[in-house]
């Protein structure tokens, strides 16, 4: 059996051993937020987190949606949730959104929001409670773990625009 394939190296492009053509794309989108997320974002602007409840299974879900994907029925109530919760899982990222490397890590986490049903989390970032920026992996692991209680830190109200980034990040808080 013969397996085909001509493998190229970066050098082949630099030294023009190979012909190629580049196509630059810049596509702009404007996504309608829809019914549920429009209300959610209005809430964020006011410093509030809203979930939505299902009349059939009783779940309170976040991010909010106009239908329950389990019961496949419309959800029917807005529920005001707390702006705090617990870390369901987290990681310590040294990679930026464009795959370039970061000198100091950031910490994405799934945060289960207080007041929503068990297991209902959202994706957000967790920052150091005083310095905001984390020094390194060891520092993160010494301060947070799965189950750690966290609270939202909001942008000042005049800077909020009705976006997920109206919450700057979450920070770990002491248990009462």
């Amino acid at each position: 059996m013969e397996f085909k394939g001509k493998s190229l190296k970066d050098r082949d492009f630099k030294e023009k051993n190979i012909l190629y053509t580049d196509w630059h794309v810049k596509a702009h989108y404007a996504w309608d937020c829809g019914v549920a997320l429009s209300k959610f974002f209005e809430g964020l602007k006011e410093g509030k987190l809203y979930g939505r409840s299902c009349p059939e299974c009783g779940r309170v879900v976040i991010p909010p949606r106009m239908f329950c994907e389990l019961c496949f029925k419309p959800t029917d109530k807005w529920v005001l949730l707390k702006d705090e919760g617990r870390i369901n899982t987290f990681s310590v990222s040294y990679v930026n959104t464009d795959a370039s490397r970061r000198e100091k890590p950031n910490v994405p986490a799934v945060i289960e929001i207080e007041g929503a049903s068990e297991g209902m989390g959202i994706l957000h970032l967790v920052a150091h409670p005083e310095k905001i920026e984390w020094e390194n992996l060891e520092e993160v692991l010494s301060m947070i773990k799965i189950g750690t209680k966290v609270k939202a830190v909001w942008k000042p109200s005049n800077e909020r625009e009705g976006a997920i980034t109206d919450i700057k990040y979450f920070v770990p808080v002491k248990e009462e």
């Binding site: 001509k6 012909l19 190629y20 630059h24 794309v25 404007a30 996504w31 209005e42």
Partner: peptide, 23 residues
């Protein structure tokens, strides 16, 4: 004015080799 949209963009580029026959 109550309609919310979120704006985003997709940037980047594609690099196409011409292939065996194209080359």
């Amino acid at each position: 004015d109550k309609i919310r949209v979120w704006k985003g963009e997709k940037t980047g580029w594609h690099r196409y080799t011409y292939g065996i026959a194209g080359e």
